[in-house]
Amino acid sequence: MIQVIDLVKKFDQTVVLRHVSADFHDGKVNMIIGHSGSGKTVLMKTMIGLHTFEEGKIIYDLTYPHPTRKDVNDMNENEIQMLHREVGMLFQGSALFDSMTVLENVLFPLEMFSQMSKEERTERAMFCLRRVNMPEHALSLMPAKISGGMQKRVAIARAIVLQPKYLFCDEPNSGLDPKTSLVIDQLIHEITEEYQICTIVNSHDMNSIMEIGDNIIFLKNGEKKWQGSNKEIFHADNEDLDDFVFASNLFKKVKATNQ
């Protein structure tokens, strides 16, 4: 579980996150939603430690070196590095290493941090690649030679190969067609339930939100305006959320039907 308490983040004098508090649960897909520029990516990157923050706390449940709960601000450089080994991340642009093949990309974290033998490493990487339905013939290809959907799947395989406790996904559907988006969403949902990890997805795709959003945090102008599940979203009495959710005609019709 991750607890964000009263988080304030500024870039120079511009306040990007205004006293955001939210809980992110294990075994659930926790979604940060909002319009472009609402602070979703900044919140996610701040939670991972890629940005520093001015006020507040980000408390993680840690396993190494022993089970404990700790605020990111109280961690030293070594502890941050250990935390990162419990985190997997799926980047918006996949961020696969373009000098390595698909298989080498997934092997990379294992080669850096696991004590496994070469055979065990390959077996584990192949297992993860099969889990995300990567075809065997694509494993020796370079990332530039495979489709965007395949790149996302490889990135998911790489993110879960070290069996992380936390999986961060930054706009996993961006640049994908609706069918591939659905496949990626289902994959994220299955992996979250299967490994009981705390998954945090940053998205503004309503289909995705309705499909997998177990715990939704809605941001507007850097402020948390609403928190609930995808089942509650249509019945929420929140003008800002309505403005976001019912921006598309499709969801306006869904709302009308529900009423």
Binding site: I48, H84, R85, F91, G93, L96, L162
Partner: peptide, 16 residues
């Protein structure tokens, strides 16, 4: 590597 977030990906894995 920096602008395509490959360096961020390494950092998040815990790689220096």
């Amino acid at each position: 590597m920096r602008i395509t977030e490959q360096i961020d990906a390494m950092e998040i894995m815990g790689v220096n």
